[in-house]
Write a protein that binds this DNA or RNA. Structure first.
Length: 460
RNA sequence: UCCUGAGUAGCUCAAUGGCAGAGCAUUCGGCUGUUAACCGAAGGGUUGUAGGUUCGAGUCCUACCUCAGGAGCCA
């Protein structure tokens, strides 16, 4: 058996062959030519004197063909005995073939094995089924599989498109601190840590209060970064560490905020459809559901009261188990039902102020309502955006802080924003992982981020 | 925190209280168009942990551990 070794250095690879270096995603441009790919052996089938190695390189997969009679003996033996996920530099001629899923195959001419995985320690992840626990324990390897790679590529586009929407609409990115001295919203569990000698610090659970301050400096701002919640939630929608993008805009009221959210989500979906139809196919997402988002027509806007009536009707018809109690927030089954009634994301606004955060502006037409909006993604994915107009009165904000039993000292700087040139302003936050889960049609948010942090898992 | 379910070969799973099994993976052999290829053979086990019931426990009981799904809360 040929025993290729780690004999290849990255900087000399370009001299191995005169063929142009390319990626699997763009290999169609080279039909009829020889090219060089750098990647890994994804799978290997054989039929007597014919080998079918499948290669992957992070942009896609392609099947190679190696007839014994057409290549040197050493090359054939090397490939025949190559172990899955060994790293390789492959040179071959690109050929269109209707039998290939991607439309192209590679007639292999040369292979340099960068590292051969030894027989005694085979690659642990099989192409066949595996359980959640095993896959999460091997997340560092699981992300190599075509479906997981496709999800991560879509995630990258969603993150870029989200930032791009604000960058091209006059926003300034102003990221808040990740270490904070107190709870922004006071109630939820926070990750606590020592801050030098006598102080505690907490990992941020939202940058909102800080970007209200930067909005007062710059007008239209957004932040984009990780947030942390020590909630003991074990569901398909929760992570303890997740990424949030949050715009905050001065002189913007609730209606304008909803329009902003609508334009923002539409832009993201459009960008994903532009760039990732192939990936969405690998993932198994029905793209017609996404095309419905970018089709003409506004996102439905539903008041809390209307949503409540919708839920009562549904309960009367036996479509949901529990009758919604007027005045309560919506539970997950309620949100799922509401979102399933629409093709587009639905914006539910003006919840009872009592169930919402202290900083939300009351509706002047009915002060028991908060000027807030939750955007519920279609197909039962639930809340992906939560936002509101903020309290702009010093006196009202101060009394709210008192009512909620929050430490006044910690909020002095926040109150200053209402003391010195207060203006109406609004903002929202979108959790990237829930957005990715919705757009990709995933069962669980743990697949939307390279290394998910959940209640029971912090390895790898 | 509460409710429910699951832990058996590297992986996915079977096994009426009565001999510990299969598929995939690995190794060896066969096949010139395979698409998670297929065919033949071999190796591979402290049934999550600790007790208990029983002639006999993977199976029944108790406790614990781990994981999963859901509720609440949230993005």
């Amino acid at each position: 058996m040929a025993e290729p070794s780690e004999r290849v250095n990255l900087w000399c690879m370009s001299t191995v062959s005169s063929a142009p270096l390319t990626t699997i995603a763009s290999i169609g441009q080279y039909e009829g030519q020889s090219v060089t790919l750098r990647g890994w052996l994804y799978n290997l089938r054989s039929s007597g004197k014919l080998l079918f190695p499948t290669f992957r390189d992070g942009t896609g997969t392609i099947q190679g063909i190696v007839p014994k009679a057409a290549v040197p003996e050493e090359l054939f033996e090397t490939l025949k005995n190559l172990t899955l996920e060994s790293s390789v530099v492959v040179t071959g001629k690109v050929r269109a073939d209707s039998r290939a899923p991607s439309g192209f195959e590679l007639d292999v001419e040369d292979v340099i094995v960068t590292q051969r995985i030894p027989d005694e320690t085979p690659y642990p992840i099989q192409l066949k089924e595996a359980g959640v626990d095993f896959l999460m324990e091997h997340r560092h390897l699981w992300i190599r599989t075509p479906r997981q790679s496709a999800i991560l590529r879509v995630r990258a586009t969603i993150m870029r498109a989200a930032a791009e929407y604000f960058d091209t609409n006059g926003f300034f990115r102003t990221d808040p601190p990740i270490l904070t001295p107190n709870a922004c919203e006071g109630t939820s569990e926070l990750f606590e840590m020592e801050y030098f000698d006598n102080d505690k610090a907490y990992l941020t659970q939202s940058g909102q209060l800080y970007i209200e301050a930067t909005a007062m400096a710059l007008g239209k701002v957004y932040s984009f970064g990780p947030t942390f919640r020590a909630e003991k939630s074990k569901t398909r929608r929760h992570l303890t560490e997740f990424w949030m993008i949050e715009p905050e805009v001065t002189y913007l009221e609730l209606d304008g905020l909803m329009s902003l959210a609508e334009g923002f989500l539409t832009h993201i979906v459009a960008r994903v459809l532009e760039a990732h139809r192939g990936d969405l196919k690998v993932i198994g997402k029905d793209v017609t559901k996404l095309e419905a988002i970018t089709a003409p027509g506004e996102f439905p806007r539903l008041s809390y009261d209307d949503a409540h009536k919708m839920l009562l009707d549904a309960h009367a018809k036996g479509l949901i188990e529990n009758a919604h109690v007027y005045g309560d927030d919506f539970g997950s089954p309620d949100e799922t039902y509401i979102s399933n009634q629409f093709e587009k994301p639905v914006m539910v606004h003006r919840y009872p102020a009592e169930v919402k955060a202290f900083y939300m502006q009351p509706d002047p037409l009915d002060p028991t309502r908060a000027l807030c909006v939750d955007v519920l993604a279609p197909e039962g994915y639930g809340e992906i955006i939560g936002g509101s107009q903020r309290v702009d009165s010093y006196d009202l904000l101060k009394s709210r802080i008192e009512q909620h039993g929050l430490p006044m000292d910690a909020f002095q700087w926040y109150l200053d924003l209402r003391k010195y040139g207060s203006v109406p302003h609004s903002g929202f936050g979108m959790g990237i992982e829930r957005c990715v889960a919705w757009i990709c049609g995933l069962e669980h948010v743990r697949e939307t981020i390279p290394f998910a942090r959940t209640l029971n898992r912090i390895y790898p």
